[in-house]
Design a protein around this nucleic acid. Sequence first.
DNA 1: GGCCGTTATATCTTTGTTTATATAACGCAA
DNA 2: TTGCGTTATATAAACAAAGATATAACGGCC
Lengths: 121, 121
Amino acid sequence: MGKKISELLKKGDFKVNGSLWIEGDGQRFFGPGPVELLEYIDQTGSINQAAKKMGMSYKKAWELINNLNAMAAQPLVTTSTGGEKGGGSILSKEAKQMIAYHRQLRERFRIFLERETARLK
Amino acid sequence: MGKKISELLKKGDFKVNGSLWIEGDGQRFFGPGPVELLEYIDQTGSINQAAKKMGMSYKKAWELINNLNAMAAQPLVTTSTGGEKGGGSILSKEAKQMIAYHRQLRERFRIFLERETARLK
DNA sequence: GGCCGTTATATCTTTGTTTATATAACGCAA
DNA sequence: TTGCGTTATATAAACAAAGATATAACGGCC
C-alpha cells in the first residue's frame, strides 16, 4: 500500500488545491479573477475603483472586461462616461447570473477539494 | 431561472475545466507539469530526453526536478553522470507512488468536471 | 467655460520569465 | 587518451507580461 503523502513531504501538512473556470472554444472565459472583478464592479459601480480594490491596474481590469464582453452573447458590463459621478459601469442581468453559476461551482469544488484532501490523509 | 450558459456565450459550446495540484506549506508541490515530466523520465531514463519530449528546456526540467526533490522527504529522482550511456536519472519508489496518487486524483477530477459541465447544460 | 471622476487608448518603461549558449565534470568504452 | 551523452551550472539574450504615464472624450454641475 505504500506511504502516505504526508510521509513523502518534508512538511507533513498538505492539501489538494486547484483552479476552476468555464471555457468556450478552447479559451478561458470565466475564471476566479474575472468573477471577483465583476463582484467589485457591482459593489462600486466603477471599473477603476474595482481594480484598486483588487490591487490591479485599470488597464488590466479593462482588458479583462473587454475580453468578457467579446466572448459573451450580450455584454456583461455596460459603461458610460461623463455625468455627475464622471461615469461608471454596471453589470448586466447576464453577468449576475454568471456570477451565481460560478459561486455554485466554486462551492462544489471546495467540497471536492476537501474530500480529496481527506482521502489522501 | 434565467438563461443557460450556452445562451450567454457567443460560441454555444462550453465546458468546465480546471487544474489540480498537491500543495504543502502554501506552495505547489505536485501539479500536472511535474507529473508528466516524471512519467517521461521513467520512460527514457533521462531528464534531457524527457524535457525534449515535453518541448521544455533542460534547464526548466532540471529546476522542476530540483524543486520536487527539495520538498520531498526522500528524493523522487536520483541522477548519475558518466558511464556507458553518459549518465541518467531514475525514479524512486516514492515518485512512482506520487504518480499513482496523482493519477487517481486526476481521474476523479475528470469525472467531477464532466458532471459539472453536464449540470450547467 | 472650468472642474470632476470615469472610460478608453497609446506609448514607454520596467520587470519577470523563458530560452539559448557555453562550460565543466562524470565514468565507461574503444 | 579521446569520445560520448548526461547532469549541473552560469551567463547572456530574447521574449512576454505587467506597470507607469500621458492624453482625450464624455456629461453633469457650479
